[in-house]
Amino acid sequence: MNRYDSAIASGVSQSVPVNKVLKNTYMLLSATLIWSAVLAVVSMALNPSPLVSLGTSIVAMLLLWFVLPRTANSSAGVGMVFLITGLLGFGLGPTLNHYAAVPNGGQIISTAFGGTGVIFLGLSAYALTSKRDFSFMGGFIFIGMMVVMLASLVGIFVQIPALSLAISAAVVLLMSGLILFETSQIVRGGETNYIFATISLYLSIINLFTALLHLLGFMSGDD
């Protein structure tokens, strides 16, 4: 069963207190973001080839797909989250080095970093304080992500700057929606596993960051 099936199947079951899931999710998310940032800096210093970056992303995807669902209910799941986020953080190195090499690259990276933080904190605060149910957005978000991925697949082979820009803009909106959706799932008891909640929010943040990086790079005339 897909994890989202189990999340909705559990409904509003409060067997695991919501506050505990929320607290554990934010603690693990903070730790993984710091860990990921450290490995991104290490990767920038080592300057690996894009092949290494692609390899770490593929390994992270395989772990996410095959190993995480089997370990998410045990303490091994925490280690797995660190492994996946570490690999994804390390994989960011070549992208960050690309932007760091352009004239105002430092400003682009720091603006994207700060912007991601502000958007995440703002949307989380909105979802937490409004206590709205954003589960009606589920279909829109997941179908939207699939459409964006299909467009990205086309974009790999047919390099059109406008398409690339549209994809980045769509990713910003979809990841914003996913942050609202996932936070509301935690608050309303639909997501009771903090490991899955952490990885979902982490992926939203890292995708938001790379999309902002691309949009800002495009505006400064880099892409």
Partner: peptide, 17 residues
């Protein structure tokens, strides 16, 4: 990588749709 993520997301997309 993208095809892998499409396959990973497909059950969730179908479920939520």
């Amino acid at each position: 990588l993208i095809i892998g993520f499409l396959i990973y997301l497909w059950p969730a997309a179908r479920h939520w749709a």
